[in-house]
């Protein structure tokens, strides 16, 4: 089986698992909705305050939701005791890419959902540059979440460490994403920073991923 076929097989399996259990959707969507509503109550209700905090709320919601998504990266396979079989059968690069695409899709939808909620509830429509932030930022976070999700899930202890690892390392996505989602901020430097962050994390996570699969 070629690597690209393996990638698609892993991705298809991830989507099948999600379709069957709706684990990510059931946990992430209500979480993001609660986060946005509570943030609106905490930062508002003055429209000017809501408009000022809208961009940050979107990216904080995505970043915190990445921790929830990260627990499902290898959690199902480990619970079903099929993780050893999967990593034995599939090429590490293909396994990484398949998992990455699934996490990227989950985080992309999370970002879309959070953006839509904030745009409506905070009355703060995002600028066009927010789309670039959504694409690149969720890609970088997906790479980070995939690598660290496998790292923490395959350990016997300290599962709660995932938040302590993902949140600080996701800081560049939070900052650049917030700036790119704020109307009137020059987009180019932040767009470059976000693309660099995504490219670096993608490369580094792909490089270290095989080491995380070893016994």
């Amino acid at each position: 089986m070629s690597p690209s076929v393996q990638v698609l097989a892993v991705l298809r399996r991830e989507l099948d698992v999600e379709r069957a259990g709706r684990e990510v959707m059931v946990t992430t969507a209500p979480y993001v909705a609660a986060f946005v509503v509570l943030a609106g109550l905490a930062f508002g209700p003055a429209p000017s305050e809501l408009a000022r905090t809208a961009a940050g709320t979107v990216w904080l919601a995505v970043l915190v939701a990445a921790v929830t998504v990260g627990h499902s990266v290898a959690g199902v396979e480990i619970a079903e005791q099929s993780w050893d079989l999967l990593r034995g059968l599939v090429d590490p690069g293909a396994l990484f890419l398949g998992k990455l695409l699934a996490v990227w899709a989950a985080l992309g939808l999370t970002w879309l959902f959070a953006s839509a909620l904030v745009a409506v509830l905070f009355d703060a429509p995002p600028p066009g540059s927010a789309v670039w932030a959504g694409v690149c930022g969720t890609l970088g976070l997906a790479a980070l979440t995939t690598a660290l999700g496998v790292l923490v899930a395959s350990g016997a202890r300290r599962r709660g460490l995932l938040a302590a690892l993902v949140l600080p390392a996701g800081l560049p996505a939070l900052l650049a994403g917030t700036q790119l989602t704020t109307p009137g901020v020059p987009a180019l430097p932040w767009a470059v920073m976000m693309a660099t962050y995504a490219a670096v994390l993608l490369t580094v996570s792909w490089a270290v991923f095989p080491a995380l699969l070893e016994e």
Partner: peptide, 29 residues
């Protein structure tokens, strides 16, 4: 977090590998 990851592994080599991965990713910051 990098230092905390060291306690994750069931054996010395696993802990070292995981810590090395976090050490590399963490340097991005």
């Amino acid at each position: 977090g990098y230092l905390s990851v060291r306690g994750l592994g069931d054996d010395r080599g696993t802990g070292a590998r995981r810590a090395a991965a976090v050490g590399i990713i963490g340097f991005v910051n």
